[in-house]
């Protein structure tokens, strides 16, 4: 039964996530918000246990009270990257726009 235990991993080393252990105060906010259990606690510090499971959503960095986490957040969407490449811009979903429509 995959749905119970399956851990999804995308491209190896495909994450910009960085943890500065010096700054970490061990509040475990990152463990609370990470959708893929990338972090674990070792003693009173958070540590990255499963880097390849990181999807760069940026929730951990946004909710770290001491800025110990750094990640370049973005959509993991090839279509967005291709649109960006064609237009010479950053990856874009082409969905914000004036009408603020949905996408992803």
């Amino acid at each position: 039964m995959e749905h119970a235990m399956k851990r999804w991993h995308y491209i190896r080393n495909g994450s910009s996530l960085k943890l500065d252990s010096e700054r970490c105060i061990g509040c475990s906010a990152c463990l609370q918000v990470c959708p893929h259990q990338v972090f674990g606690m070792q003693g009173r510090k958070a540590q990255i246990l499963d880097r390849d499971a990181c999807m760069e959503c940026g929730a951990c960095a946004r909710n770290c009270p001491v800025q110990a986490l750094q990640v370049q957040p973005g959509v993991g969407c090839v279509a967005a990257i291709l649109i960006g490449k064609l237009r010479g811009t950053a990856p874009t979903c082409e969905c914000g726009g004036s009408k603020g429509g949905a996408c992803c």
């Binding site: 999804w8 991993h9 995308y10 491209i11 495909g14 994450s15 910009s16 959708p35 893929h36 499971a53 990181c54 999807m55 760069e56 370049q72 957040p73 973005g74 959509v75 993991g76 969407c77 090839v78 279509a79 967005a80 990257i81 291709l82 490449k85 990856p91 979903c93 992803c104």
Partner: peptide
């Protein structure tokens, strides 16, 4: 298949860029 990344819950942008560069 590569474009299905946008519908998934686990693909990262860094990874997707690596993939596009190699596959397109």
């Amino acid at each position: 298949a590569m474009n299905f990344t946008g519908a998934t819950t686990f693909t990262s942008q860094t990874g997707a860029m690596l993939e596009v560069d190699k596959a397109i």
